[in-house]
Design a protein around this nucleic acid. Structure first.
Length: 417
DNA sequence: TCTGGGGTCCTAGGACCC
DNA sequence: TCTGGGGTCCTAGGACCC
């Protein structure tokens, strides 16, 4: 059986672990810039708070209904995720960390349900995070089982999908748009054909599926029928792209401001590359104006620079990013968002050297190691390039940020007795 | 005033090779 | 009338996920 462990309302639950007084209170977590709602506790869902709801349109509603609002604190969520995954790892051999709040596991043998129930209790006791677990023969079915585990409180957070009668009932009750891998577009196509639930999709004409939803759709259909097409992959694959992008707290109109932010994003990408032991050979920069101001000039610029020798060096990646930025910058716009994407990633130990390369890569490697060492100890960007600047007018708005309880000594929890 | 960030996979079409 | 057959690689765009 394949089990899917899914943390309940993950970001909201993380905030609650260190604020037990918020248990059974409505909690929401906002995106960067305190923009829109990205996580809701059950109580907040019950109040009708929608996923993606803009915060500024709901201030009054939050106030009136006693909703506890948090800015997103990814340092906290990342660390809590690691704790949850580490706890799961103590109980299983085959495990795929699928996202920040989900993991697929392989459960062999007859006692799968008991093991899942025990695991659920252990994760909550060790980390404070409540999880739901769904078990089924394939990943796609395990996703459906997990939904049921969450929806039906009498299941106590674990649901097993194995008998064909259960399977048929579950698929029939699963609307087609809720299937893992069916998005808005495919759902509309399927509905127009009368395929409204997962059971109908499982028995739909496979020729039609192939030509309208491509092989992805065919695999999905097989998975719904119980044939494994997506196996549990316990090795973490090297990332193919790494991106750092932000909407600005305040719009930026001049090149100098954009240079600071793009420079900082590029350094961030380089740091992530080094952490993965990777190098990139392309650097893409993009800038966007504010799409919510249709009366203002709209412009989305992007440019990719190819590098002769793959690198993870701050100086080289920033240099390429700034070059790309200069090419796409338009003085007649004000910008709301910018980002850097590094691609064509290769393992650092397999870099093909260039014939005309003038960079002393050994020396630069030592320099980056020192920069990382100092910044890990003293704080992000303590040692930085001049182009990154110091005033950061473009920085995020985070007015309701919780402490980094688990990753910063100065913000560790204080308990009064 | 105010609307997130970071990924993956698939396909069609163009360009090119022998 | 009629103009081969079999490949690879790259890119942009679409769709989807959390």
């Amino acid at each position: 059986m394949i089990a899917l462990v899914d943390c309940n309302n993950f970001f909201a639950s993380c905030e609650r672990v260190f604020r037990p007084n918020l248990k059974s209170q409505p909690v929401v977590v906002l995106s960067n810039n305190d923009g829109c709602v990205i996580a809701r506790s059950n109580e907040a869902k019950a109040l009708g708070v929608k996923m993606g709801a803009p915060a500024f349109k709901n201030e009054e509603f939050f106030e009136r209904n006693g909703v506890n609002v948090f800015s997103s604190n990814f340092a906290l969520y990342g660390d809590m995720s690691k704790r949850v995954m580490d706890t799961i790892k103590t109980e299983v051999d085959d495990m795929e960390v699928y996202s920040i709040d989900e993991a697929f596991l392989v459960f062999e043998g007859p006692a799968a349900e008991e093991r899942a129930r025990a695991l659920r209790v252990k994760v909550e006791r060790w980390t404070g995070i409540p999880v739901s677990i769904g078990l089924a023969p394939t990943k796609t079915l395990a996703k459906i089982a997990t939904r049921i585990a969450k929806k039906m409180p009498e299941m106590n957070g674990v649901f097993v999908l194995s008998s064909s009668a259960d399977m048929e009932r579950a698929l029939q009750r699963c609307p087609v748009e809720d299937i893992w891998g069916i998005g808005r577009r495919s759902a509309a196509k399927l509905q127009s054909l009368g395929v409204t639930n997962a059971l109908k999709l499982a028995f739909a004409d496979s020729g039609w599926i192939r030509s309208n939803l491509s092989v992805t759709g065919v695999r999905l259909q097989k998975e719904l029928q119980g044939t494994v097409c997506f196996s549990v992959n316990d090795i973490t694959l090297r990332k193919k792209n790494i991106r750092t992008a932000r909407s600005f707290g305040k719009e930026v109109s001049n090149l100098a401001g954009l240079r600071e932010s793009v420079g900082t994003f590029a350094v961030n990408c380089a740091r992530k590359l080094r952490k993965e032991g990777s190098c990139c050979s392309s650097v893409t920069v993009f800038v966007n104006t504010n799409p919510f101001k249709p009366q203002a000039t709209q412009y989305n610029g992007a440019r990719t620079i190819k590098l002769a020798v793959p690198t993870n060096d701050n100086l080289e990646i920033v240099d390429a990013a700034i070059r790309a930025l200069r090419e796409i910058y338009r003085a007649d716009c004000t910008y709301k968002k910018a980002g850097v994407i590094v691609g064509n990633i290769v393992p650092a130990e397999q870099v093909q050297l260039g014939l005309f390369d003038s960079v002393d890569r050994t020396k630069r490697g030592v320099l980056m190691k020192s920069v990382d060492y100092i910044n890990d100890k003293m704080g992000r960007d303590k040692v930085r390039l001049a182009v990154q600047g110091f005033d950061r007018k473009w920085r995020l708005r985070q007015e309701r940020l919780s402490p980094c309880y688990t990753t910063r000594f100065s913000e560790i929890l204080t308990v009064r007795v």
